Simulated assay, not measured.
Amino acid sequence: MTGRDDIILEYLAETGVALNKRGLEINLSSDGYDISYSTIKRRLPKLEAAELIEIADPSGPWYRITEKGERYLQGEADLRDEPEPNA
């Protein structure tokens, strides 16, 4: 996981909303985070493969944090033993 991953997960957890890639970029930017669309586009499939986020609505797709993602942020899910998914 990267620091950018944590920012994405924290944002989804704090807001409790489901967002698409562009929505994440716009909202993170307006909150002062410097994460590019290309980074978001590259990292979301990895977060999904690690089961930290899920697709809430495939029409976007719209992403939301999972229970595992919440546990990861709370320090209850250790991902060090899990290989980073290739996406």
Score class of each variant (00 low, 15 high):
Tyr11Cys: 14
Ser59Ile: 09
Ser59Val: 13
Pro85Asn: 12
Arg71Ile: 03
Glu14Asn: 15
Thr2Trp: 01
Tyr72Val: 05
Asp78Asn: 08
Ser38Arg: 15
Ala18Asn: 01
Glu48Asn: 06
Gly32Thr: 08
Pro85Ala: 07
Lys41Leu: 08
Ile7Pro: 00
Glu14Trp: 01
Ala56Leu: 03
Glu70His: 10
Leu9Arg: 04
Gly16Tyr: 04
Ile35Gln: 10
Arg42Asn: 14
Glu54Pro: 02
Leu44His: 03
Ala77His: 10
Pro85Glu: 09
Gly60Ile: 06
Asp81Phe: 07
Glu10Lys: 09
Ala18Thr: 05
Ile55Lys: 15
Gly16Thr: 00
Ser29Trp: 07
Ile53Phe: 05
Glu84Tyr: 06
Tyr37Cys: 08
Val17Tyr: 14
Pro58Arg: 08
Ala77Trp: 11
Leu24Pro: 11
Pro83Ala: 10
Arg4Asn: 06
Arg80Pro: 03
Ile40Tyr: 02
Pro61Ile: 00
Gln74Lys: 15
Glu54Lys: 13
Leu24Ile: 12
Thr66Phe: 05
Asn86Tyr: 04
Leu12Arg: 09
Asn27Arg: 13
Ala77Leu: 15
Leu24His: 07
Asn20Ala: 05
Ser36Met: 06
Leu24Cys: 14
Ala49Val: 01
Thr66Gln: 10
Leu79Arg: 11
Leu52Asp: 05
Pro83Asp: 00
Thr2Met: 03
Leu47Gly: 02
Thr15Ala: 05
Glu51Tyr: 04
Arg64Leu: 04
Glu51Thr: 14
Pro61Ser: 12
Thr39Asn: 10
Glu48Met: 01
Ile53Pro: 00
Gly69Lys: 03
Ile7Arg: 09
Leu19Trp: 02
Thr2Asn: 06
Arg4Cys: 06
Pro45Asn: 03
Ala87Met: 02
Glu67Gly: 12
